[in-house]
């Protein structure tokens, strides 16, 4: 198990290095540059030159790359050009918000997916399962930003149940936890609905598959109730593929949450990525890309470890 984790970590390190190299050079090779974003399009060449000197952008590309990588190895992510704050602090703040959004959405959608998947698996081939499948299909093909916009249109503008966006009310000087939670509801539900659509079908299919297996018949034959078989045996086995999916879904749901964060003006990582991409704030972009890459790798690793715990056979592969 430990050997497997180590090999995976080392190969992930190489993958991430390649990724971050590509991103670094692409960002620096494009015309324009951060000087224009900071000084405006009408900046004089002298001012641009001066600022570039100050930001260290006049050094050769390789030198910048080596420097940046060296700092990265020492845990330093540099300063945002535009916001004049340490990237680590900036990313850290947004990371907390994204994690809050993301963790609640994952929790919500996995719980929902298990409940829906169970119903679907049990009623497989009859109308409840078919109805659920139709809904799953609709939500799967529905773009996140459309769902988010509809939520705002109906739940906040028309029926005024939830705020339209942001993370806390501006009018309240000291927004409490309740206010934050109220702002979280719509983004969380939007992210979760799409996650649920994908996960529940997958889970339902594996429940259906497990129910047809010999051990279920044996268990029922020896007198166990259906409920006991379902929760003690089937659930455990059907959960395995779901865990893999959740691990793999990590970065994809994150990508979806970029759109959600933009729709709801929610100050998370995706929102930060979007803002800094618009102003070519290289240090911030590189840091976020690296971070998402790491999350992907960790998501995969997480899936493998949990699978190893659920099924001992996995540990020796």
């Amino acid at each position: 198990m430990i050997r497997m984790i180590l090999t995976r970590l080392i190969s992930s390190f190489f993958t991430l290095t390649i990724l971050i190299t590509i991103v670094f050079f692409m960002a620096h090779a494009t015309p324009g540059g951060p000087a224009f974003s900071i000084l405006g399009q009408k900046a004089t060449p002298q001012a641009v030159e001066q600022l570039n000197q100050k930001l260290g952008l006049t050094a050769s590309l390789w030198r910048q790359y080596v420097m940046w990588f060296w700092h990265l190895l020492h845990g330093q992510l540099g300063y945002s050009y535009l916001l004049n704050r340490p990237v680590r602090q900036l990313v850290g703040d947004c990371m907390v918000n994204t994690l809050a959004l993301y963790a609640s959405a994952m929790l919500f959608s996995v719980t929902l997916a298990i409940a829906i998947g169970l119903i679907q698996g049990i009623t497989w081939g009859r109308w409840p399962a078919n109805l659920i499948r139709l809904l799953e299909l609709c939500f799967y093909a529905m773009p996140t930003f459309f769902v988010g916009t509809l939520m705002i249109l109906y739940l906040s503008v028309k029926w005024r149940i939830f705020p339209t966006g942001g993370i806390s009310s501006v009018r309240i000087s000291d927004p409490g936890l309740l206010d934050y939670m109220r702002h979280l509801v719509l983004p969380v539900v939007t992210v979760a609905l799409l996650g649920t659509a994908s996960l529940s079908y997958y889970f339902g299919a594996s429940v259906h598959e497990e129910l047809g297996k010999d051990y279920v018949r044996t268990a029922l034959a020896k007198g166990l109730t259906f409920r006991a078989v379902l929760f003690r045996h089937v659930l455990r086995n059907a959960l395995r593929p779901l865990v893999t999916m959740v691990g793999l879904a990590f970065p994809y749901i994150f990508a979806g949450s970029v759109m959600v964060e933009t729709v709801f003006n929610y100050p998370g990582l995706g929102y930060l990525l979007w803002r800094s991409a618009l102003s070519q704030d290289y240090p911030v972009i590189s840091a976020i890309v690296l971070l998402i890459g790491c999350l992907t790798v960790l998501g995969n690793l997480f899936a493998d470890i949990v699978n190893g715990l659920l099924d001992p056979r996995e540990r020796y592969e």
């Binding site: 993958t15 990724l19 960002a27 494009t30 970065p251 990508a255 759109m259 998402i292 992907t296």
Partner: peptide
Amino acid sequence: MRVLDAVLALPALILLIFFASLL
């Protein structure tokens, strides 16, 4: 395959946002 892994480590949308904003 290494290059492929690197590209796949990021959701396409993130890459797209990144490149589209540069251009």
